[in-house]
Amino acid sequence: MKKTILLLSYLFLSSCNTDESSSSNSNEGMYFPPIGSTSWETKTIASLGWNETEVQPLLDYLEEKNTKSFIVLHNGKIVMENYFNGHSASETWYWASAGKTLTATVTGIAEQEGYININNKVSDYLGVGWTSAPLEKENLITNKHLLTMTSGLDDALGDDVSPANLQYVADAGTRWAYHNVYVKLQDVIAQATGQTWTNYFNTKLRDKIGMTGGAWIQNNGLSVYWSTTRNMARFGLLALNKGKWENNQIVPESYMNNATSTSQNINLAYGYLWWLNGKSNYHLPQSQFQFTGTLIPTAPSDMYCALGKNDQKIYVIPSRKIVIIRMGNAADGVNMALSDFDEVLWQKIRAVIN
């Protein structure tokens, strides 16, 4: 049985009221849920003119595909909030690699505060020998190379980011490869700020947007973020609003624009640890093959995404003022980030949002 937090209201279906709601929606400003409160304003499917008859097929598909939670925001307000398979609004779940975007965001904050420069080499902060690459090759690797997955280090050696496991394959900037070496940015920030990564993250990002209760948990030597689904939605809302929460510009807008744009010329569908839709070609994790076309053809071309193992999703669509969250187990077996599930899911989402 599904547990649906937000009941999809069928009030205000008269043409007069629908027209009034549509006019109001077109003029409303971005809404931000209060810090330190569980309240969050909602709006109805009907008020947006979306297709209510396609909601149940979407929910059925989500439940069938091992989903635990699903949220849709429009202009910051909750339109759908659904929980499945025994999960609840108060329970936490892991972000997996969708949490890479948290690291990218905090990197932008640390640069704004003058602690780091993303164009500086990593060894300026961690010292030499943080990899097993020859010194002249290690010194080519900048913080930006970590943000863009172009470190040139061997991605075939697993998740371990100890120096012995970070081995040279190509010069930094010449090869795109999905690699957990990005987590060294957390060490860079800790070293530069003189704080623990967790403390800097909590005070500069988590607490400022009300992501209460979330935590970094160690898993096989890597920190993985866990939170409620609403906390993931708060972060998605920050990303939609280009790093601004109400009147507080937490991350520079220029940095967020760069983070959600093509960051290098190898994988056009990759920014600063964000995936980008609508590009002419893309690469996938664990592959050096270039695929022609867009990541998710059915999804809006301006969409950018945080994608994690076992289908953790943050979809941000600026043109529609929409944020969509999906947490759960893998829809169809284990996958690293993108899967066929994204395309089918978007067909069903499209049927609802027209």
Score class of each variant (00 low, 15 high):
I314R: 06
K279F: 07
N310M: 10
S301D: 05
K313H: 12
V316K: 06
N281E: 14
G293R: 01
G278D: 14
T292W: 04
D302T: 09
G293N: 08
S301M: 10
S287R: 12
K321D: 14
T298W: 00
A306C: 08
S287N: 06
M303S: 14
T298F: 00
Y315Q: 12
K321A: 11
Y304D: 02
W275V: 11
W274T: 00
N281M: 09
H283K: 14
L307T: 11
W275R: 04
S280N: 12
R320N: 11
I296T: 04
T294R: 14
Q312W: 10
N281V: 01
K279Q: 15
Q286C: 00
L307H: 01
L307I: 12
A306V: 10
L307D: 05
S280A: 09
Q290C: 07
S287D: 08
W275C: 02
D311I: 01
Y304P: 04
S280F: 06
P300T: 07
Q312G: 00
G293E: 13
D302H: 08
T292H: 02
N281G: 13
L276C: 07
T292D: 07
N310A: 14
M303V: 11
K321M: 05
T298G: 02
L295D: 06
L307N: 02
W274V: 10
A306I: 01
I314N: 06
F291K: 15
P285W: 04
H283F: 13
L276W: 03
L273T: 01
T298A: 04
G308T: 04
P297L: 05
L276T: 08
A306M: 00
T298Q: 02
W274H: 04
S287E: 11
N310W: 10
A299R: 02
Q286I: 03
G293P: 04
K321W: 10
F289T: 14
N277G: 11
N281Y: 13
N277D: 14
S287A: 07
Y304H: 10
N277A: 12
A306F: 01
Q288M: 09
F291Y: 14
P297D: 03
